[in-house]
Design a protein around this nucleic acid. Structure first.
Lengths: 143, 143
DNA sequence: ATCAAAATGATAATGGTTCTCATTTGCAAC
DNA sequence: GTTGCAAATGAGAACCATTATCATTTTGAT
């Protein structure tokens, strides 16, 4: 049920290469659950892994298709990725500090299915982002 | 209460110029409720209005800030705009033909407020996009 | 009609992402 | 363990939506 083990690369038809292992490992060990391609690229370079930006983009997309990662399109134009462990969830994004919190609400989920059906749509997926101000003391009011 | 009349340009501190009037008029007369900057640009050129793409982008942003239009960030990287008339609503987007349908669900709205409050956030706004396949006969399966 | 401030539009620049292609790597068969 | 070749990589070019620049035009108050 855990989709984040290296063996799953094979299952997805992906050779287990150095960049792919590094990226997978980064997501599993990083403090940051949500990272953009640029974030991943910088982290890898910082830890001495010599990788190309193009490869990062390619691998992230492959991992998304393989179901290892989930991609989110937040406002601002850049995609962020996170490990696909556990169930689907939505996000609250702090507009001041960029802090992201996850939530899952069964009522919202089921209403969505219902609404889509009523309109004659077959749901693929959805994105629900709540943009708000977090009230954390540590909210640094900057990105 | 109608925020889409030309007089509102003045209220927003915007001079009533030719491009701005044309763009506002396009949104009010077009079949398409949801248009990207590129869409607007092409429509205007097609109807003989000589406008620059930069102006379209500028005006759309100004209209958004003035509250005349609402901007949505759908997947795919480009923003779409629609007239800000009536109440807030969310969207279902057909992944095949790009057809956009609007909906409003009170249960979803109120649950969101509740969830945000539970997590210690003060909501500014939210975006809920359901990506699906529409079942319309006319769905042309192309963008 | 006059004129300064604001708006426009052609074009360059930007930022995120994808494409190209020569070189390198993984891995299955020998 | 070599070998061979398809798959993967990485440097840089290309792309696309959007924003910035700046000389020219338009607006609206006088």
């Amino acid at each position: 049920m855990d989709k984040t083990r290296p063996e799953h690369l094979k299952d997805a038809g992906l050779k287990s290469t150095v960049p792919r292992l590094n990226i997978l490992n980064l997501f599993k060990s990083s403090q940051e659950r949500h990272m953009s391609a640029e974030d991943v690229y910088k982290h890898l370079l910082a830890s001495g892994d010599d990788v190309g930006l193009a490869t990062v983009y390619r691998v992230l997309t492959q991992f998304e298709q393989a179901g290892l990662l989930v991609r989110h399109y937040f406002e601002g134009g850049k995609s962020v990725f996170e490990l696909n462990q556990g169930r689907h969830h939505d996000h609250i994004v702090c507009m001041q500090c960029g802090h992201v919190e996850e939530f899952y609400d069964e009522a919202i989920e089921s209403r969505q299915e219902k609404v889509a059906a009523e309109h004659g749509f077959a749901v693929h997926n959805h994105s629900l982002h709540i943009y708000a101000d977090c009230l954390r003391k540590k909210c640094p009011h900057k990105r």
